[in-house]
Design a protein around this nucleic acid. Structure first.
Lengths: 360, 360
DNA sequence: TTGTAAGCGTTATCAA
DNA sequence: TTGATAACGCTTACAA
């Protein structure tokens, strides 16, 4: 029962099911060289059908699993892709992660997931780990990342794709979500319905997407309703802040007939607060969210919202990343993905309450 | 500008920032052997403070990152842990994944995430990949997995932790969620409130947790309200099926005063349907969910629910896994985690409508 | 078309 | 206390 050596050397009885089989064992079993086995596994040189099937049979018989680490070491490249997100419990992420995960595996890579928790130090530690793992590429799907970390990644030859963290470059691709088109659709939708007095609940002004969305809203409003100055309330992208903003709106004394909110979580919070105050959505006030998180369709009424197509974002991000990994000389690309309005039940024409200059 | 070789050999000018530094380079820089460098990095043998700091300085100066693959190959163990879940967009998972991710990284491992999408074939492919990666351990956090896959993992010496996929064994730990205690609390809560006629919306009877929850409900009811036979409606754990079950309940002609639902998604669906039918929750009907997903606290009214403590599940699962990885001779453990009731606003005493034998 | 053998960057066993 | 050096399992020139 010699088990100490970690490897059981059989005398002549064929492969042991317990020992981990190496390429060499497969080669011996097939009666060929290790190079040949490697070539049939990787399709990297022509091998006659006969040897090929001998090898395949041997692989089968040995229940052989290639060792990824040995492979990475020998070839100098790994098949691991890193994904860095802020917080998987933020409802924006699950769909994105799912899409990225699928794309990554379809292309034969493996996915390492890290969750920064919005913590810069943790992000930095994670970038270090990615480099240690010699990942082929990293998808940086977080709102903020210290620029030095990005530099370090690029210096270490890691291919990168990110979401508006900078411009596309030699080894980096950039996915830019076009918030403005969706917001324009939203404002246009509300204005067509007859709304004029439209407020905005913005995301934190310290986060880029928050300010971009606010500016897009303002720009659309200026185009559609030039004579009104829309009220802006600021939240922090979380549910509770939507609630608070709604309270402020309620207390402001001049209720808008519609409100465009910078994300669904705040929109859902605002909707609840309005309803708790006795308003009916959409009869008394229309609400438009942003992102189209899963629960947007499940609220009552279902939320009209601008969709950030996360499945597409994930797919195209990995497509771009794989391109820069597999064609090392091609530069990164910039991919623009539009957002678009999904009309559900939280928007309707404003109630005709005060009809000015009405007779009698 | 010799860049072709991939490695730039500097003449005497110190380390190049472009080249990837190896242990050997650090050793040369520090004027010691590779063995010594390895020992200070891994704390695996005593090294004098002096050499130690020389090495540390050299590491710093070279901006050295150890190569995980070389390390895994040489040592025979990797620091990768695999996590297999069904679907990250199922609201049960984000919190679990977050907790697992934290625990894994705190312990110095890296996390490979895979999403089976409830697809057996995909699960099988993923198990193969885990083995190729020589992962130290795998957390199987999915409702179903073919037993042969589990066997294969164990045969390949991979440590495993799972959620009721079988019994704890030599290299496998089992996390068992005690559904019954939480459900008992829920039934007890409703009965104390005065409810007698309590229905159950069950999860699919083809899924283990669905049948366990139903049986726990039935057992509690038999204990508390022995003379009633509770109505059972079957759903499939999804939002829409909660809605459908509510419709069935509404159409049944005999409305219960409370309903215990097998998960929050269905509970939320049922709640919406009841509300759409003009019922008030909890005045007309009380609802208890199960899981305590994020949106349970955000619904209106906030959902009373039985909590599956996912943060704890994740933490303890990785704790158990790390134990079996780091102490190869210790057997796996079985960890029982209780569920418990969180009382929010969707439960209240039943309305006293028909008071039988009332005078006049 | 197939085989031989030199790395890949660590760890770990000995020896010094 | 430190240093040589042989693995680890694979890829990939280069040879045959």
């Amino acid at each position: 029962m010699n088990r100490q050596s970690g490897r059981v050397h059989e005398k002549a009885s064929g492969p042991s099911p317990l020992a981990t089989m190496r390429l060499k064992d497969v080669a011996k079993e097939a009666g060929v060289s290790t190079a040949t086995v490697s070539h049939v596994i990787n399709n990297t040189k022509f091998v006659t059908e006969e040897t090929r099937s001998k090898v395949l049979r041997a692989i089968e018989k040995c229940n052989y699993y290639p060792n990824v680490h040995a492979r990475a070491l020998a070839s100098g490249r790994s098949n691991i892709i890193g994904l860095l997100i802020s917080d998987i419990t933020n409802p924006f992420f699950p769909e994105l992660v799912k899409s990225i995960e699928s794309s990554v595996y379809e292309r034969g890579y493996n996915l390492i997931l890290v969750n920064t928790n919005y913590d810069a130090e943790r992000a930095s530690e994670y970038v270090r780990r990615m480099i240690e793992l010699k990942v082929a590429g990293v998808a940086l799907m977080t709102a903020e990342l210290d620029p030095p970390l990005l530099d370090e990644l690029v210096r270490k030859q890691v291919r990168v794709v990110f979401n508006d963290l900078g411009m596309a470059g030699e080894h980096m691709s950039n996915i830019v979500l076009d918030y403005a088109v969706g917001i324009e659709e939203a404002v246009n939708h509300l204005v067509s319905l007859g709304h004029r007095k439209i407020a905005h609940i913005a995301g934190s002004s310290s986060i880029r997407s928050g300010v971009i969305r606010r500016e897009a809203f303002l720009a659309s409003m200026a185009r559609h309703v030039p004579n009104e100055t829309p009220a802006i309330y600021e939240g922090d992208f979380k549910f509770e802040s939507g609630r608070r903003a709604a309270t402020e709106i309620l207390d402001s004394g001049s209720l808008p007939t519609a409100v465009v909110v910078a994300n669904d979580l705040m929109a859902l919070g605002a909707m609840e607060e309005f309803q708790a105050a006795g308003l009916h959505v959409p009869a008394d006030i229309s609400i438009v969210g942003f992102d189209d998180i899963a629960f947007a369709a499940l609220s009552s009424p279902p939320l009209t919202t601008v969709c950030s197509p996360r499945a597409e974002i994930g797919r195209r991000a990995i497509e771009a990343l794989a391109m820069t990994i597999e064609h090392p000389n091609q530069p990164g690309v910039e991919i623009r993905i539009p957002t678009y309005l999904i009309t559900r039940k939280s928007t309707a024409p404003p109630r005709k309450v005060k009809r000015p200059n009405t007779r009698g």
